[in-house]
Design a protein around this nucleic acid. Sequence first.
DNA 1: CCTTGACCCTACAGTTGCTGGAGGGTGCAT
DNA 2: ATGCACCCTCCAGCAACTGTAGGGTCAAGG
Lengths: 131, 131
Amino acid sequence: MALKIGDLAKATGTKVQTIRYYEEIGLLPAPARTEGNYRTYASATLRRLSFIRRSRGLGFSLDQVRELLGLADHSDWSCAAVETIAREHRAAIERKIADLAALDGELARIIDRCGHGTVAECGILEALSPA
Amino acid sequence: MALKIGDLAKATGTKVQTIRYYEEIGLLPAPARTEGNYRTYASATLRRLSFIRRSRGLGFSLDQVRELLGLADHSDWSCAAVETIAREHRAAIERKIADLAALDGELARIIDRCGHGTVAECGILEALSPA
DNA sequence: CCTTGACCCTACAGTTGCTGGAGGGTGCAT
DNA sequence: ATGCACCCTCCAGCAACTGTAGGGTCAAGG
């Protein structure tokens, strides 16, 4: 026990500043301090930070993480809200994929128009210019 | 001629503030002013802004747009640099798509684990929690 | 002539999620 | 006692805008 911020950082692959940032925005509780004003964490905080990091790794926003953490604290509630957040997040990701795929196709077409000549006759710049 | 900033905004689907922002960061030249201190644009600026917006719409960063604009000004240069920028951008988009697709798969698996019961037995939260 | 409303101006704060730096204190080993 | 790794707070910065406050300008209608 009595983990220092650097221990937490190492254990979760988080930067020290990021942990302090999570504390600042209220995602992590303000921990106890030593006499020398060092933050000291209990292992519960390590679990909480791991949860945050895993969720962030899956692309959840900090607001979504906050909601998930709030839900997790009420073990008798229904899981439906959790599922909703996850499903909405997944839908957003799929929208983003579709957008990027469309972009990719358009870029492919544009790049194809490059005649490898001078800038003046470049089909790429032409494609970017107004009709 | 003598377009006002609002005309430019309407013609290109850009917010007025965004146009001023592009001017501030040097993407658009500082235009002439009227007696009443209103910006007045020539049609060349409309073309330049259209180019910027089209490029942004394809996901190019402002720095990339700046490069493309710089290249476009030298009609006798080789098109190769233009193609390089476009190809690199496309590669970045495809990396992003791959990342999101992986995320999507992981989310699908996690969501599947939801037992529709209480939070305590929720497979989603479990999947987010540390092992 | 005066007012109303649409437009324009500058300057600055806020968004998301951190990251880095300055300038200093703590704690342990040598 | 001194070196080094670590910790502290506060603040600035990234991308690419967006929004707001507090004003000025201009043409039309009453």
